[in-house]
Structures are given as structure tokens and as C-alpha cells.
Amino acid sequence: MQTPLELAFKDIEPSEDIKALVAEKVAHLETFFDGITSCHVYIRAPHQSQRKGNLYEVTIELRVPGDELVVRRDQDDTAEHQHLKVAVRDAFAAMAQELKRWKAQIKGDVKTHGGPLQGKVVEIHHDEGYGQIIATDHRLIYFHKNSVVDGNFEDLQPRDTVELVVKTGESEIGPQASTVRPISSLQYDPHPKRSGQ
């Protein structure tokens, strides 16, 4: 993930067991899709249910390129959710289904490229000499100012369109561009044709 997992407990004592379980479940989600940018998990013991005692509420907010997936487990008043580990397990199982559904939806947009990979600058830090690009294959790609060719890093702005070449083998910070070339928006094709069409 681009940013570390954020886990918050409300009306409940933080537990090392639960922290470890959540970290394990997040790692499992990354086996379905390795482009998750952030994950926020909120765990709370809300109201007292007159029928079943204290029910835990687990909310997961997962950011993926261009979207946010949210699962909230509290409405179904399941008796098992009196057990926090079960509530966490069920919430992550639901998120895994959401993630698979989202991935299937975008699959139609992930095309094989006849030409160079393109993308748009989503983040630029002129003072620190780096930025990030969301590519047409939905990956978030890091780039350093030294990778910019046929243009000036200082001139790049968010939403600018670029062609890029991604290094083979991921760095510690994820996919990284070896070359970034600014192009005009008229040349930008967010939906390249599939090969063979």
C-alpha cells in the first residue's frame, strides 16, 4: 500500500490480537489486488442491543486508483458479532467480495497497449523532486524529476497527460517510471484499443 494501514478503536480497548488480525486480513486483500493505496479500519462497540447484548461495528474504507470501497458491518445484528474476531472476519470477507467485483468491473478498461503507456499526473511535489501518475492500466506510478524527458519537471502540473515507461521490478515504493514524457491532451487516450480489434 502507498500509505500505512490506519486502525482506530472507539468505545473499546485496543487489542494487540485484533491489530494483528486486521493487518493479516489487509495483507490478504492485497493478494487480490496489489494497487491498494490506503486502508482505514474503524472498530467500535456501539449501542447496546436489547436482544443480543453489545454488537461490534466494523467499517473498512479501502482506496483503490480512482475509487473508494466501503464496507460497514453493523446493520445485520448478527449474534456472532458479539465476538469481535468474527465481526472483523466477516467485514473483511465482505470487502474481499467488493474488491473482486471492482476488479472485474475495471478489467474491461485494462487493455493491452499497442503504444506507450499513458497516464495523468495526480500528485507533484516540485520542492521534493517527485510525483505520481495514475496510468491507463489503473496503476499508481511514482516518478522522480530525473525521469522527465522532452520537458521540464518544474512545468508539470496535476492532470497533465504523459507517456511513461515503467521500470521492470518494483521498488520499495511500488511501480516507478524510468521515463516520463509530457504529451498534449489531444494525444491522450484513456481507453487504448485492445490488440486484435
Rank of each mutant, 00 (worst) to 15 (best):
F33S: 13
K85C: 14
A87P: 11
E16M: 11
L69V: 07
R51Q: 07
H28K: 11
H81W: 08
I60Y: 01
Q105W: 08
E80G: 10
V64W: 12
L69Q: 12
K100Y: 05
G35P: 15
V64F: 01
I60R: 00
F32G: 06
Q50S: 03
I18P: 02
E98N: 09
E16W: 08
S49T: 06
D67P: 03
V41T: 03
A8G: 01
V70W: 14
G53P: 12
S38A: 13
H81V: 00
H40A: 06
K10N: 09
Q105R: 15
A91R: 08
C39R: 11
E61A: 03
F33L: 12
K107D: 05
V41K: 00
S49A: 00
A94Q: 00
Q97Y: 07
I12Y: 09
R89W: 15
K10H: 11
K25P: 07
K103S: 06
D67I: 10
L21D: 13
L21T: 10
Q75H: 15
T37N: 09
R101W: 04
L55E: 00
R51T: 13
V41S: 03
S49V: 01
V70E: 01
A23Y: 10
T37D: 10
T78K: 14
I12M: 05
R101L: 01
I18R: 03
R89P: 12
P65S: 08
F92I: 09
E30Y: 12
D34M: 09
Q105V: 07
K25E: 04
D90H: 07
I36H: 07
T78D: 15
G66A: 05
R63D: 05
V22S: 03
A27F: 04
Y42W: 13
V86G: 04
G35R: 13
K107L: 06
S49K: 02
A27C: 02
Q75D: 14
Q75G: 11
E61T: 03
S15G: 00
Y56M: 07
Y56L: 05
E24T: 14
A27V: 09
C39H: 04
P65Y: 13
N54W: 08
D34W: 08
A45Q: 13
I12A: 07
G66T: 12
E98L: 04
V64G: 07
A23H: 15
A87H: 07
Q75I: 06
A93I: 11
E24W: 08
G53N: 05
L99C: 12
A104M: 06
V22D: 01
A45D: 15
K85P: 13
D90Y: 12
K19P: 04
L62C: 05
L84E: 10
L99T: 04
E57V: 01
